[in-house]
Design a protein around this nucleic acid. Structure first.
Lengths: 353, 353
DNA sequence: CCTTGCTACTATATCGGTACAGAACCCGAT
DNA sequence: ATCGGGTTCTGTACCGATATAGTAGCAAGG
């Protein structure tokens, strides 16, 4: 019971294998009548269509584009914002008839997807630039698109203006009169670290941009920044870090959070510490994810357009695939951010004027 | 500048192509010394490793498994629960060195991933059993695993005991004394439909199970069920449907919601209608997703273990791939559900004893 | 000295398609 | 009658690897 191939059908119908191939892939190359006969024979023999693997080999493309994420996939999938972006990408990419292949950056086992799985190109989303998986993709010379990732001149990229967004958020708090501000951001270290200024160059790109935006703006105004670095992980970690930050002697009157999800936990922690928001504590998030509107009070945050980000990234990818190595200089996009003021921010209780 | 292939390296080192292949894929087949020379030549020539496409053709496997979702991908990606499950699958599957390929069920364009993209097997998650994409997967005779999908004897599956969970939820409300209960569930129709009993056979599997669990339990107790069918779509739809349901003349004193996300919108609608929860209205969700704990009041819901579901599905898949066509009878799992009572349910205000 | 059994490497035959360059035929135009 | 041009189909040569069987060389055993 060897497999049914083009040849099987060709023999059955009495034509050349090439004709059968054409019946499937280039209908204009043969008469409608013969094509019908071929297709009929194919279904009769249980032939589904040209084998994707063989086709991929000969044609040189697989019909799939990869997406590389640094962090554990299970974690990424709990991230609302990442998923929003993904959805947009998936939508756009699949509408082009491509499939999206998830690559993990873990180097577990001997089989490394980034090296061993066939794909026509890959999106690199918020990855450690030194990760081996990314290294493989680069070596394979696949068309890449960077998203939320430090720019590389020769690689098209889509970024969000995190820096300006963060600045605006800090500015907003300063304008309200806050002088002691907590910064809550995620960091690669495995432990919560309070008031240990990070080495920005070690932070993931988006974290770095936001951190710098906040910090520079606060420093410029001579305000005090207290920091809490949260390990990537569950919400528990966020909660715990926020709680520690808010239990400090000189408690900040406001916190700037790396994400809305973190802000949600900060609010929960504040609540548990009997702090009123925004009277005792102002909270600013980042992303304007759906939770921002669900929180009570509703969350002041910095909006970015995930969907647009995804669409743009997908577009860059499909363009790159269409014009193989066209070598127009790589395009770089920087999407705007916007401060959205809602209910979670107010002047500090004892605002000295 | 033809591509660098095994042959290029073979010529360069002066060995047979097969030896080069072995250097990469079966290191035990040649001396360490020669292997080093081959690998050195490979890096020198910029060879990354055996071409995945060619390898896939010859070996017959691609190292990727597909996941098929019915609904638009962008929509699926806003679904917390689906993403939780995905994450677990992705984690498990990639730890086996496989990649996950997202397939869309839309039949857009001529290129249909379910038919045209190479993969070793596929997970089918909560899909319309008549969808063409699923049809292709079946025709290709790929190893499949069904998840949240009506059982098929010959296809391994993982399901959740939605029926019993829904029963327990309904029972809980009945025990509290509720006699008029609203049912809020998603349906394929494009319009919100109030009090139009659905034809269960047309509902997606999970919806059907939950609906039937509720309905049968309520009917058995002689309680009144008012229904609101919500089109798949955004939260706005959920909100609107909940609002309509709660604006009825004989307003239900409790609502059973298909998901926690729907419950969140029901709570929002209730809030906007000046209804106190749980005093004026009890709300029960489904899934025990993270939002359940974030809502105020915290949400009574039916818990299912997404992570376990994902893990199990991935396991079934990898097993199926390992034992090619081993034809042990397909295993079917039914994971338990559990009612979690929190703050959003209470006896109706004027509970007649 | 001849067999046996390793180890280290090679030759050949696919895997299942598709690109490309014909070949056969028919038609209308010269 | 000849020719150019279109349509329809065929033959051949790969695409880049790997499974399998086979060969050479060498050490140990009888």
């Amino acid at each position: 019971m060897g497999n049914v191939t083009l040849q099987t059908i060709a023999d059955h119908v009495g034509v050349s294998r090439m004709t059968v191939s054409n019946a499937f892939s280039r209908p204009d190359q043969l008469s409608a009548e013969l094509r019908d006969r071929v297709l009929a024979a194919a279904t009769e023999l249980g032939y589904v269509g040209p084998d994707p693997r063989a086709r991929a080999l000969k044609r040189g493309n697989t019909g799939a584009v990869g997406v590389l994420l640094t962090k554990s996939l299970a974690y990424a999938f709990t991230d609302d914002v990442a998923m929003r972006f993904f959805g947009a990408i998936a939508e756009e990419v699949t509408s082009q008839g491509l499939a999206l292949t998830l690559l993990s950056a873990d180097e577990t086992g001997t089989h490394v997807p980034a090296r061993d799985v066939g794909m026509d190109g890959a999106l690199v989303y918020s990855c450690d630039p030194t990760s081996p998986a990314l290294g493989w993709l680069l070596k394979r010379q696949l068309p890449l698109v960077y998203v939320d990732q430090a720019e590389q001149t020769d690689i098209p990229s889509v970024n969000v203006d995190d820096y300006r967004g963060a600045q605006a958020a800090a500015r907003h708090l300063l304008d309200l009169g806050h002088r002691k501000v907590g910064l809550l951001y995620s960091a690669p270290e495995p432990e919560i670290a309070i008031d240990q200024a990070p080495d920005p160059s070690l932070l993931p790109h988006a974290v770095r941009q936001r951190y710098l935006g906040w910090k520079n703006e606060l420093d410029k105004a001579g305000a005090t920044a207290r920091t809490a670095a949260v390990p990537m992980g569950g919400r528990e970690q966020h909660y715990e870090a926020a709680r520690q930050l808010l239990s400090l002697g000189e408690r900040p009157t406001a916190v700037l959070c790396f994400s809305d999800v973190m802000a949600a936990e900060a609010i929960r922690a504040a609540h548990d510490l009997q702090l009123q928001i925004p009277e005792d504590l102002s909270v600013v998030g980042f992303d304007d994810s759906p939770v921002a509107m669900q929180l009570r009070p509703t969350l002041t945050t910095v909006k970015q357009d995930f969907a647009e980000k995804g669409r743009l990234a997908a577009k860059l990818m499909t363009d790159a695939l269409a014009t193989k190595a066209a070598s127009a200089p790589a395009r770089h996009y920087l999407l705007p951010t916007e401060l959205i003021v809602r209910e979670s921010t107010a002047p500090p209780r004892a605002a000295t004027r």
